[in-house]
Amino acid sequence: MTTTEIASFILLLTGAVFFFAGTVGLLRFPDVYTRLHALAKADNLGLGFIMLGLLLQAPSPATALKLVLIWLLALAASATVGFLIARRARQNGIVPWQSGDRR
């Protein structure tokens, strides 16, 4: 195994860990706002690490640039959609969970 392969390996695994944390957060967090926190942050970071790991294996510079573009698009998309869902949830009167409430 070369150094690049090992680095790629580690980055990919780190990405998987963040995806896992995002899923656990989605299962455990009490309301839609906190779940959005988990998805918007952990999953995007997971995708970022997967992207970096694959970047090291990219066959050509054009593919590498495309990977970065996909990641940036996914970032912009999930930030925007997350904002839209959160805003609509608030406008439709969904009350955020408080630390005293039952889950």
């Binding site: 455990r28 967090f29 009490p30 309301d31 630390s99 889950r103």
Partner: peptide, 22 residues
């Protein structure tokens, strides 16, 4: 965003559940 991801991952994975949203 690295900090944000680590923080939320830690909040999700830690055994005791502690959130104080506002």
């Amino acid at each position: 965003s690295l900090r944000g991801g680590i923080q939320v991952a830690w909040l999700a994975l830690r055994p005791r559940f502690s959130l104080r949203p506002a």
